[in-house]
Structure formats: structure tokens, C-alpha cells
Simulated scan of single mutants.
Amino acid sequence: MTNPNFVSWMTATQQQVEAALEATLPSSERTPQQLHDAMRYSTLQGGKRVRPLLAFAAGELVGATAANVGRIACAVEMIHAYSLVHDDMPCMDDDVLRRGKPTCHVAYDDATALLVGDALQTLAFELLSTPLEGIAAAQQLSMVRTLAIASGHAGMAGGQAIDLASVGHELDQTELEFMHCMKTGALIRAAVLLGAMCGQPLTAAETDSLDHFAKRIGLAFQVVDDVLDVEADTATLGKTAGKDEANAKPTYVSLMGLAQAKQFARDLYDDALAALTPFGDKAARLKQLADYIVARSF
């Protein structure tokens, strides 16, 4: 990831998303102050904003306005932030570090963390259901449905349930892919599709190609995460390193070994890029983001 143009775009987009989140989240001075403070603590100044970046890159593909994609990006990032707050709680992954600082339930308490997740999730849907300029109500309803499916029992929440039930068990590659396509991939896929739904309509074939890209790069993201959990240290990750192995969680590294997991990530990357062929140069940002996602570790 050395393209100066891409680095500039990514930095500017991350700053834009941060400013939008800062303006959208309730002030810590509003009652209930602790809830609002914890919402901001858990969402602001953390993470690489990969999902918002994907939404903006897909928006560029279809000529979407920055204002509309910005709203989408905030909604998706709030869903992601809520999932991290809940995942870190003692009843689930029981982690004490996230994005280089104490997790929400450690910085505040369990009850506050539970409410933070609830509040971020509902705020995301409030944002997404507020009229978007130039987008028909039926299209916006479809966007709400897309995010709901990606977040719920058939997506992120369902994948987390499978993950928790799989601790101490061996999964084969098909089972592992099914779990991660839900837990991690569903929201990444939604970010891409929602960004594309903000602009000029795509044909059915183009939508299928973009969806295939999103599925493959979402899975590659998880494979790289599994590699990083083994190779990177806690300071680099911003969360506890080696926790998957310590908790006997099935991962691509435990299934395949480190070298083969890295190769699998590259294969997924190649497949994702191939899916963007019909879009030509219009997909440049999506291609650059695919490079960035896979090159995080090797």
C-alpha cells in the first residue's frame, strides 16, 4: 500500500467519517451523560474505518454524493462499533483491550456496555431511515433491509453465535467460511452494496459482480485477521494478541497452518479483483482497498 494518491484519499475519507461520527453521536453533556460518553468512547478515534472506506469506494463507482455515502458510512460503522462492544463483554469474548484502550465494559461497566451496543445499533437505523437526498423511498427501504439482514441472525449476530458455539471444536473449511461470511463478511458486504445503492443503478450482472467482490474481500479480511492474531503483537493490533489460540477458537491458521492461510488470503484477493473486471478504471479505489486489506500483514 504505497500509492500516494490512495493514501491521501484514505486519510481524507477517514477524517471525513470521523467528523461525521463526531457530529452525529449525542453529546456527552446530554442526559444520560454516561451512556452518551460511552457511545463516543467506543466509536470515535479508533479503528481504520475499513467498512466506511469500502462504502465510499463503492459510491465512487456509481457517482454517489459524499453526503449520502457519509450517512451510510456512519450507520455501518455504528453497527460495527456496537458489535465490538458486545463481543468484548465477559459473557462473550471477555477482552479488556480494543483499539489500544480499555474495552467499554472495563472503562465503564457491563450494564453501560450493553446499553451502548443497543443505542449504537438503533442510532444506525435512525440514520439510515432518515430521507436521503435524491434517493427514492423504496430504494432507501431496501437499504435499511440490507443492513438489517447483514447485522442480524442471518449475518453478524448469527456468525457470532456460531463462533461462540465452536470454541474447543474443529471446523472444516466449509463450516469456517460459513461462520465468517456471517460474522465478519456480512457487514463488509453490506458496506459495499449500500455505497453502490447511493448512486446510478447497476445492472443485475454488475450487482452480482460487486457482490462477489465484497464476499471474497470480506473473507480475505478475516483470514488476514487470523494471521495477524498469530504474527502481530498486542501493541500493533490494539487488542489482545494470541487470544484465538488461547481460547481454542477455530481459525484459518489452526485449520490450514500459517503459510497456507496466507496463500488462501492471496487467492481470495485474486478472485475479488477478477470480479471487478467489468467496471474497469471506475473500480480503482475498490482495488486499492483490496490491496490494503490483504497487505496488512504480508
Rank of each mutant, 00 (worst) to 15 (best):
S8N: 08
T11H: 13
T11V: 14
Q14T: 11
Q16I: 00
V17N: 06
A20R: 15
E22C: 04
L25W: 00
E29V: 08
T31W: 15
A38H: 03
M39L: 04
G46Y: 08
G46N: 08
K48I: 07
R49T: 01
V50L: 13
V50E: 02
A58P: 05
E60L: 00
V69S: 02
R71D: 10
I72M: 02
C74F: 05
I79A: 04
I79S: 07
H80Y: 10
A81S: 14
V85E: 03
D87Y: 12
D88S: 10
P90V: 11
C91T: 07
Y108V: 10
D110H: 07
D118T: 12
A119W: 03
E126A: 10
L128V: 02
P131T: 07
G134Y: 03
Q139P: 11
L147S: 06
A150N: 10
H153A: 15
Q160Y: 02
I162N: 06
V167L: 06
E170Y: 10
Q173V: 14
T174S: 15
E175Q: 15
F178D: 13
K183L: 04
A186C: 15
A190T: 06
V192T: 07
L193C: 13
L193G: 11
G195Q: 02
M197H: 10
M197E: 13
Q200V: 11
E206M: 06
A214G: 03
A214T: 05
G218R: 09
A220I: 02
A246V: 12
N247S: 07
G257W: 02
G257D: 00
G257F: 01
A259M: 08
Q260M: 14
D270P: 04
P278I: 12
P278A: 14
D281T: 05
D281Y: 05
K282H: 14
Q288D: 15
Y292S: 05
